[in-house]
């Protein structure tokens, strides 16, 4: 959907930081993408392929993209049970109540990059 726009945000974060350190190139960018973040890893890969093909002279142009997926996890506030949620992700399978809260799966971060 809007992975092109997200790619712009990711590159800006990396480029700004890399320039502030006087790096001449960026070799690798690592992301954490949660299952429930609305960003699609495949589409992000594609957005980066398009970016590389364009040749805009940015530091990160040759960078490899590494995506770490974060699976959705819920935890029940009543019984403490941790589970991998299905469609009704707030329903604790032990209590059968909407007492589960998402504890992982929504992250969408630039974790790190490698520059020199």
């Amino acid at each position: 959907m809007h992975e092109m726009a997200l790619r712009g945000d990711i590159l800006q974060l990396v480029e700004n930081d890399a320039r502030s350190r006087n790096f001449k190139q960026v070799d690798k960018v690592e992301l954490i993408v949660g299952d429930l973040s609305n960003a699609m890893p495949d589409a992000l890969e594609m957005a980066f392929d398009v970016f590389r093909a364009r040749g805009l002279g940015m530091l990160s142009e040759g960078a490899q993209l590494v995506i770490h997926k974060e699976a959705a996890r819920s935890k029940c506030v009543i019984c403490g049970h941790e589970y991998t949620p299905d469609r009704r992700l707030s329903i604790c399978p032990e209590c059968a109540l909407p007492s589960g809260r998402l504890i992982a799966g929504e992250t969408f971060k630039v974790q790190s990059y490698e520059g020199s």
């Binding site: 945000d9 974060l13 890399a18 350190r21 790096f23 969408f108 971060k109 630039v110 974790q111 790190s112």
Partner: peptide
């Protein structure tokens, strides 16, 4: 050199 940014992609939007 590896730089740990640990930054939300939507930082600017936020």
């Amino acid at each position: 050199m590896k730089i740990n940014l640990d930054t939300e992609v939507l930082t600017d939007n936020n």
